[in-house]
């Protein structure tokens, strides 16, 4: 991943973070909220190659750690999304690509979002954070999974085109 792409990816994630915190979080979704940020971050991780997935995960986590509403220590999301990036890198061949198997791709993204949230809960519990009742946590996970499955196919084609445009000639 070139330094220019690292900077542009970081900028993109920050804009996305502002949209999530300012607009998406204002919508009262039935069941539970939807994290557009996580859905797009996991989609981008899924688009990337081995090293790219790990670095993208780290950058996405670093920006998410800036969230002023978060109770978690700074770096928790970076750790989790770097690990998710590694998992996606290991399973790169299973994910395939968006054009050839879009449904598999969406399922991987939705599972990735859920895994991130579960890892966040588990890591938070290890650090002594209060996570609320099991029922509430399950509702949040279910809601996020549902909304990710519904909304991800809507933005994936556009996200794919934006990513293609951002690649350097060598990376293509």
């Amino acid at each position: 991943m070139s330094p220019i792409r690292i900077v542009s990816t970081l900028g993109f994630f920050f804009v996305l973070f502002v949209v999530q915190e300012s607009a998406v979080s204002l919508i009262h979704f039935p069941i539970s909220g939807f994290s557009l940020y996580l859905a797009i971050a996991i989609s981008l991780i899924a688009f990337e190659d081995h090293n790219g997935a790990i670095v993208t995960g780290f950058l996405a986590g670093l920006v998410l750690d800036l969230s002023p509403t978060s109770n978690a220590p700074f770096g928790q999301w970076a750790l989790i999304l770097t690990s998710i990036g590694f998992l996606f890198a290991v399973n790169r061949d299973s994910i395939s690509d968006l054009a050839s198997s879009p449904i598999t791709f969406v399922i991987f993204v939705a599972v990735g979002v859920s895994l991130s949230l579960i890892a966040y809960l588990v890591f938070g519990a290890l650090l002594g954070e209060e996570n609320g009742s099991l029922r509430h946590d399950a509702t949040v996970l279910l809601g996020n999974l549902l909304w990710t499955v519904i909304f991800t196919p809507m933005f994936l084609p556009a996200l794919g085109r934006v990513r293609e445009y951002s690649l350097t000639a060598r990376e293509r």
Binding site: Q20, E21, S22, S25, F29, S35, S70, N71, L117, D137
Partner: peptide, 9 residues
């Protein structure tokens, strides 16, 4: 604004 959906707080 309301709290982010990406954290449980």
């Amino acid at each position: 604004a309301r709290g982010s959906a990406s954290s449980f707080s």
